[in-house]
């Protein structure tokens, strides 16, 4: 379950951790939009590398690397699918440009994963819930949302135990054809789902016996406050968005193949 570690909150102190979750969300969203704007390799690579300093500042390098490693499986699939579809549907492209376009799509996927991981690695679920609450979303929804996030690592751990228990009963997950592989997961998914449902019922009862929803207006212990660094980051995000819209509209971005051809 090492891949999920890359999306799990790390409780350490860093400047990135201290940023208001709302600001961080705007920043991540900007990255997301910019990544979807461009489909050339060079700007996407720039996006990818520009986030590395943030990861180092946030002290989550190890978890981040693990996530990248974990997502390499999907990245490979995306790459192969792109190569195949580009080969068949854009008949006149050269092989080099097919590879470049496929790599661009792969890097885009990694950038999206990367930006989400920065957000989740550095934002505690409680803070996230709090920020949702303070932008006016009803508490019931915020609670459901934070609880869902909080239980992801619990479920991941439980899935690992279930996998172990079934392997100890001779279940082999690897090997076999596609149908067999899918069928192999039934003994894992059923206990996982049954336990999740059972747990949610128990949680609901426990919550209600602690007077959940007794008062209309809940007070909170911590209040989120935007500070100067938050406004700075929002400004940076806005500038980034503006710059990329400008680049998208008015600058013709060369592909790597073109640059190499000119030089060679």
């Amino acid at each position: 379950m090492s891949m999920f570690d890359g999306l799990k909150f790390r409780n350490i102190s860093s400047p990135i951790h201290r940023i208001d979750p709302r600001t961080k969300f705007i920043y991540v969203l900007t990255f997301f939009i910019v990544a979807v704007f461009f489909n050339q390799l060079i700007p996407l690579l720039i996006l990818f590398f520009s986030q590395i300093p943030l990861i180092i500042i946030a002290k989550v390098k190890k978890e981040w690397l693990r996530l990248i490693k974990g997502s390499s499986f999907f990245a490979t699939i995306i790459f192969i699918m792109n190569v195949i579809s580009l080969y068949f549907y854009s008949g006149y492209s050269s092989f080099a440009s097919i590879i470049e376009q496929a790599s661009a799509m792969t890097v885009r996927f990694i950038v999206l994963v990367e930006s989400f991981s920065i957000f989740f690695l550095t934002t505690s679920p409680d803070m996230l819930g709090l920020s949702l609450e303070q932008i006016g979303i009803p508490y019931e929804f915020c609670f459901a949302f934070t609880t869902a996030i909080r239980f992801v690592p619990v479920l991941a751990e439980e899935a690992q135990t279930i996998i172990d228990a079934q392997r100890a009963r001779g279940l082999e997950l690897e090997g076999g054809n596609l149908m067999k592989r899918i069928r192999n997961y039934i003994p894992i998914l059923i206990p996982l789902i049954v336990n999740a449902i059972r747990r949610s019922l128990e949680l609901a009862e426990a919550m209600e016996s602690r007077a959940w929803g007794a008062t209309e207006k809940r007070t909170t212990l911590y209040m989120l406050k935007m500070e100067r660094r938050d406004y700075c980051l929002i400004l940076i995000s806005a500038l980034m968005l503006a710059a990329s819209v400008y680049a998208w509209l008015f600058i013709k971005i060369p592909t790597l193949t073109q640059i190499l051809n000119i030089q060679g």
Binding site: E158, T161, R167, A168, G170, I186, I190
Partner: peptide
């Protein structure tokens, strides 16, 4: 050796039955 091969010899009953019943 694989877990499956070893399990033939070594039976392991987990703590929580709900982790295996399906």
């Amino acid at each position: 050796v694989s877990v499956a091969t070893l399990s033939r010899k070594v039976g392991f009953v987990f703590q929580n039955p709900d982790h295996q019943l399906f």
